[in-house]
Write a protein that binds this DNA or RNA. Structure first.
Length: 788
RNA sequence: GGGCUCGUGGUCUAGUCGGCUAUGACGUUGCCCUUACAAGGCAAAGGUCCCCGGUUCAAGUCCGGGCGGGCCCACCA
């Protein structure tokens, strides 16, 4: 029946945002998944949390603003279109339309998957980063950054992926540990051998200096001299610098433009020339002489062979080291080169303190995740390279003339969005028709890092913006704190002067059933189709709710089994209750018994605990508590202890039966409400047949303090304990639980005896006892039983 | 190397402000069809709470040190 409810929710627009309701808006800045064509378990996990939050807040009386967008641009789509549809990038317009078409289909599939788990987003609010409106807004923000002087174009060594043929941001690269070689190469220096150690001999043509530590006695004498490079017969200065590690390799390092970030720092510090030895395809340039045109790996092999042959190599040792590689949002893993290139940048370095301040204003769940943001921000030493040499992306709205003049779409009086690629304009400076539209597109994070503005309709709908910005909640995984969270906080702060969200809910990653990170090589990947085929959505949702804030969480078939069994149990409980509520009429005067007060008191505690936890985005504990209450307190104990009152009105009286009905009705009503955010389908199904109306739009239950009676808790617990003793006796004596007992004699102290006064009837009936005797005795502590 | 985080029966897990016999699930074993449910119920076995030290009347919990995972960052050219 889940599909029935999903369709009903969608068709009747049950969860549509209503700006007229007058309720306080609770807006959710949901993560737009990349449109790969399918959701993975991580999405199921994360978005179930989001949906629980949305459903809970709705029941708490908020007007929940719950859009779901899609992040469309990206290299994987380009690669798929090239391969599957055999369309070439060079045919730009066709290529882009094919990418868009492919993405449309992907979104359709992914949207269905969202609906399959009972996702309560308002699909009329969906945004897609490839839409014209969306690109328009992105370009507006870029122009604003340009006007503020934060967006600039410059030639600078950039992180370059030779395989993907594009510049990358720091956040897109990481280190991969690899087995490499450390080459010890002799250089000639005033009649002596000076031996450098390097992992990259192919960088030799770009060598512009040799460095030693100024305190290193072995090499002090060389400082200020010139060293002769083998093969190239070129002299470079020998310099002394504190940053050289005397213990690594030979303690002599050669600096090349550019081998790593340290080279950039040294080149700047000593004002050394820049030699570009590697081109954008990852091949050696003309300066490499006889190695020109070779790939990096070929050149490395070749030059090391030549150096060995000529006797310049003293030693080659194996070395495990980390290689900067293209690791994020791509399975490319190609080593990164640092190439000086004209690129577009956004100045972040001058705003890092503001980002830290803004991040600190956000309430982080769990709080320690703030530290990750602070660490990342404080370690940031590069501006953000936003240009990508790709095709399917948001174009950068500028024209650059050969003379160096830059003109924005605004300068040209053009309406956004624009696609300047291939467009040539007259330069406003030199008046030549040589201003070419920028051929690059934006980094995907440029698209996605203004989602709080997009959803709140920034500069489009001031009324909505006032109510929906800052977003109430930003849910996301910890792996994109340094990207999505960082960039969003930064850009929205620049654009609005405000921190863009109030609460930041951080989830961990979904691990495989073996507890290890899901990966192809471990063969432990679970696709959502698999569990969704076997279990229903309310089951998967319970699994997802079991995760803890910020922690990685394994997928578990056992947990699904248990969750599924719980649903069946709940179904049977409600069937039982429904059966006994057929003739129940609400509103008559009710005289509750001790056991009734007991279950109702426990229910009040449950409501309080659940509310407290859900308010701080903790889901695993309340779900466990609710399930335990239903299974054990309600089903195992309460139901068994009131059956006699329900079935035998002629013995126990009409009032007693009515009190039990009243209690059952109230308990069932409340637990369905508590469960609704977690298991909306079954809650709705039972609710609709028993109570009418829409469970998930009802008010969240409030604690009734009058029912929170300590004495009722104590009395009920005593009854549970006694019943448990009787069950143990029957179990030990291989009797069925329905077997009648001749005698139960309770020796009780005064305290227990007085508690038992209101429980005798229930004890006798539940235990099937013919003769119940209670004797007050000061010899016992609590109670002692004699059973026959 | 730095930061964060975790370590609880065979496996996973709860444990707030230190407080009685350490929670629950899965699995295992025995028994039982209880006028909702055998996809159930009742019960049993199973623990040096990673180790060492400290604070305290009292430590799984707080502090210090160590060991071992995980994640992030930085790197060694």
């Amino acid at each position: 029946m889940e599909q029935k409810w999903q369709e009903s929710w969608q068709d009747n627009k049950v969860y549509s945002f209503n700006p007229e309701s007058g309720r306080e808006v609770y807006s959710i800045d949901t993560p737009p998944p990349f449109t790969s064509g399918t959701l993975h378990m991580g999405h199921i996990y994360n978005h179930t949390w989001i949906d629980i939050a949305a459903r809970y807040k709705r029941m708490r009386g908020f007007e929940v603003y719950f859009p779901q967008g899609f992040d469309c641009h990206g290299l994987p789509t380009e690669l798929k279109v090239e391969k599957e549809l055999d369309v070439k990038k060079e045919d730009r317009e066709l290529f882009i339309s094919k990418c868009a078409g492919w993405t449309e289909k992907a979104i359709k599939r992914m949207k269905k998957q969202f609906n399959d788990i009972g996702y309560s987003a308002d699909w009329s609010l969906t945004y897609r980063t490839m839409d014209e409106d969306y690109k328009k807004l992105i370009q507006e923000t870029l122009l604003e950054f340009y006007r503020k002087g934060i967006l600039y174009r410059a030639k600078h060594p950039v992180l370059w992926c030779p395989r993907c043929g594009t510049a990358l941001a720091k956040a897109e690269v990481g280190h991969i540990e690899k087995e490499g070689r450390l080459y010890h190469i002799d250089l000639e220096c005033s009649g002596h051998k000076l031996t450098i150690a390097t992992t990259r001999p192919e960088m030799m043509p770009a060598c512009v200096g040799v460095l030693v530590h100024p305190g290193d006695e072995r090499y002090q004498k060389f400082i200020g001299k010139k060293a002769m490079l083998p093969v190239y017969e070129r002299e470079v200065p020998v310099l002394g610098d504190e940053a050289v590690d005397v213990d690594f390799g030979t303690g002599v390092v050669y600096i090349c433009t550019f081998g790593d970030e340290q080279d950039i720092a040294w080149q700047k510090k000593y004002n050394l020339p820049v030699i570009e030895a590697i081109d954008s395809r990852g091949c050696m340039t003309a300066v490499a002489g006889k190695y020109a045109g070779l790939s990096i790996e070929e050149a490395r092999r070749k030059i090391s062979e030549d150096l060995v042959e000529d006797g310049h190599i003293r030693k080659i040792e194996k070395l495990r080291h980390s290689v900067l590689s293209h690791t994020e949002r791509s399975n490319c893993k190609t080593p990164i080169e640092l190439l000086p290139m004209q690129q577009w940048f956004i100045n972040v370095k001058d705003y890092l303190k503001d980002v830290v301040d803004a991040s600190s204003e956000v309430s982080w769940y769990p709080p320690f995740m703030l530290q990750r943001m602070v660490d990342w921000t404080e370690a940031m030493d590069w501006d953000w390279i936003i240009s990508r040499q790709r095709v399917f992306g948001t174009p950068i709205p500028f024209w650059v003339c050969e003379c160096g003049q830059i003109m924005s779409a605004e300068d040209l009086g053009l309406e956004l969005p624009v696609d300047p690629r291939g467009d040539v304009r007259e330069c406003s400076e030199c008046k030549n028709t040589k201003a070419c539209g920028v051929g690059d597109v934006c980094d995907c994070w440029i698209d996605s890092s203004v989602t709080p503005l997009v959803i709140a309709k920034w500069q489009r709908d001031d009324e909505l913006f006032k109510r929906a910005y800052p977003a109430s909640l930003r849910p996301q995984g910890y792996e994109i704190i340094r990207t999505w969270a960082f960039y969003t906080i930064y850009r929205c702060m620049i654009l609005t002067g405000e921190t863009c969200f109030k609460d930041l809910l951080v989830n961990g990653m979904v691990a495989g059933p073996d507890g290890r990170k899901m990966s192809k090589s471990l063969g432990n990947i679970i696709e959502p189709e698999e569990p969704l085929k076997k279990y229903c959505a309310d089951t998967i949702r319970q699994w997802a709710a079991g995760g803890t804030l910020g922690d990685d969480y394994p997928f578990s078939w056992e947990e699904c089994d248990h969750s599924q069994r719980f649903l069946i149990k709940l179904w049977n409980i409600s069937r039982f209750i429904e059966m006994h509520l057929k003739d129940y009429r609400k509103g008559d005067a009710v005289e509750l018994r001790d056991v009734d007060y007991w279950i109702l008191a426990r229910l009040q505690n449950l409501i309080g605990d659940c509310t407290r936890n859900l308010d701080s985005y903790v889901y695993n504990i309340p779900l466990t508590d609710i399930r335990s209450f239903i299974w054990h307190d309600l089903a195992d104990n309460y139901l068994e202890m009131v059956k006699h009152r329900l079935y035998k009105e002629e013995i126990y009286g009409k009032d007693s039966r009515y009190a039990a009905q009243y209690t059952l009705n109230r308990v069932l009503e409340t637990i369905l409400l508590l469960l609704s955010p977690f298991t909306p389908h079954i809650s709705e199904e039972i609710w609709s047949s028993l109570f009418g109306g829409t469970c998930s739009l009802s008010n969240w239950p409030e604690v009734d303090e009058d029912l929170r009676r300590e004495d009722a808790l104590g009395n009920g617990d005593l009854l549970v304990e006694l019943v448990s003793e009787i069950r143990r006796y029957k179990s030990d004596n291989k009797l069925s639980l329905g077997a009648e007992l001749e005698l139960l004699e309770v020796q009780a102290d005064n305290k227990v005896a007085s508690k038992l006064k209101g429980l005798e009837e229930d004890l006798k009936a539940t235990g099937r006892i013919k003769d119940l005797r209670i004797k007050v005795s000061d010899k016992v502590d609590g109670f002692e039983l004699e059973i026959r």
